[in-house]
Amino acid sequence: MYKELDPMLLSQLRLAIMSYLMVVREAEFNALKDETGASAGNLSAQISKLQEAGYIDVEKTYRNNYPLTLCKLTPKGIDAFEAFYADLKTYFKA
C-alpha cells in the first residue's frame, strides 16, 4: 500500500535542503546555496516555506560584522523527514 508523501518535501530544492541538514546539523545559507546549486532567491523562498512549516529554524546573526543566516532542522523537521523516507520506501517494496 502506497503512503501519501508529504507535499512539503516533494519539491526538489526543499527535499535537498532537508536531506543536507539531516547530515549537517546546522548550515549557513551560502553553504546550502553552494551544495544545492540553487539561486539565492529561490533558496530563500524555499527556506521560508520550510520555516513556516516548522521544519527548520532560521537564525540571522553576524560574524565579523557580516550578516550570517544559519539554518537548522527542528525536531518536527526531523520527524517529517523520517516519515517521508519511510513513506517513500513503500513505493519500492516488491
Binding site: 508523501l5 518535501l9 516533494l10 519539491s11 526538489q12 527535499l15 535537498a16 536531506s19 543536507y20 539531516m22 547530515v23 549537517v24 551544495e35 544545492t36 517521508f84 523516507y85 517513500l88 513505493y91 519500492f92
Partner: peptide, 18 residues
C-alpha cells in the same frame, strides 16, 4: 514536483555530498 524515484535520488545524492 518530484516523483518517488526522483525523491530517492535527491536524498541519496544530497546525503552523499553532505
Amino acid at each position: 514536483i518530484l516523483n518517488p524515484q526522483e525523491s530517492l535520488r535527491i536524498i541519496r545524492e544530497t546525503i552523499d555530498v553532505a
